[in-house]
Computed example of a mutant assay.
Amino acid sequence: MPLGMLPATFSYSQALEAGLSEWHLYRLRDQGLIEPVGRGLYRRHDAEMADIDLIEVAHRAPPATLCLTTALARHDLTDEIPSRIDVALPRGRHRPTTSALVAWHLFDPATFEIGRTELPLDPDTSIGLYSPERSIIDAVRLRHREGPELAYAALRRWLRRRDASPSKLLTMARRFPKAERPLREALEILL
């Protein structure tokens, strides 16, 4: 059966390329061997547990990167439970439609990769995740939209960590002119 040759999450066209007919694909779905993740996207039933919403986002927009409240929550820098998934894309990229509740944020392509790491979701899929420092910088520079409490509470929490390096944070903040001055002032108050 060609189902075993497919990755844990696959698209309709990948299934057809692997030799599954449309009829066979729907039969596998009806038998519970695969489940729909989103329009034209499926996941094998035998795949390990994963966050289906993040899997869908990663497949629909490969450069997608978790940012702002979502990234701060992943780094345990906020107690807020995001009501939506905050995802950054380089400005000029298409924002795909997803079944997951996503807030798309368009960031400057020149700074998009700064502080970006990969978060593995399953053996075949990963999604971008901004580092704690980059997440704090973004919260500071977008505090007019996200609220200043989010940024400064995350900064206070980050400073309590053993691996917190204010100099590293300020070095990265120099690449973001709207964030450097308020971040420097906040650090002067908190340190």
Results as ranks from 00 to 15, higher is better:
90 P>F: 02
114 I>D: 09
106 L>V: 09
74 R>I: 00
124 D>K: 09
139 A>C: 02
77 L>I: 01
101 L>Y: 05
162 R>I: 06
92 G>D: 04
103 A>L: 04
160 R>S: 07
142 L>A: 15
98 T>M: 11
145 R>E: 11
116 R>L: 08
157 R>G: 12
121 L>T: 05
97 T>M: 03
84 R>S: 05
117 T>S: 15
122 D>Y: 04
161 R>L: 12
151 A>N: 15
125 T>A: 14
157 R>A: 07
95 R>L: 13
120 P>K: 07
150 L>P: 07
122 D>L: 10
138 D>Y: 09
148 P>G: 14
154 A>T: 09
120 P>W: 01
119 L>W: 02
99 S>I: 09
71 A>K: 06
140 V>K: 01
124 D>Y: 09
108 D>G: 01
107 F>A: 07
101 L>Q: 09
151 A>M: 03
140 V>E: 06
136 I>E: 13
143 R>G: 03
162 R>Y: 02
110 A>T: 00
126 S>Q: 12
108 D>V: 08
98 T>W: 07
86 D>L: 09
76 D>H: 14
99 S>Q: 11
105 H>M: 07
83 S>N: 15
69 T>R: 12
89 L>T: 10
133 E>P: 00
140 V>H: 12
110 A>Q: 00
110 A>P: 00
115 G>C: 07
161 R>M: 09
88 A>S: 09
128 G>H: 10
107 F>D: 05
144 H>C: 05
135 S>I: 06
152 Y>C: 07
95 R>S: 15
97 T>Q: 05
122 D>C: 08
99 S>T: 10
121 L>Q: 13
71 A>T: 03
83 S>Y: 13
123 P>M: 07
74 R>E: 05
74 R>G: 02
90 P>W: 00
136 I>N: 04
92 G>L: 06
94 H>K: 11
118 E>I: 12
77 L>E: 01
150 L>Q: 06
96 P>F: 15
119 L>T: 01
95 R>K: 10
150 L>Y: 01
76 D>K: 11
82 P>M: 10
156 R>M: 00
83 S>I: 04
161 R>W: 07
97 T>R: 13
118 E>R: 13
81 I>S: 12
151 A>K: 07
98 T>Q: 08
119 L>Q: 10
91 R>Q: 06
151 A>S: 06
150 L>H: 11
139 A>R: 02
129 L>P: 11
105 H>A: 14
71 A>E: 00
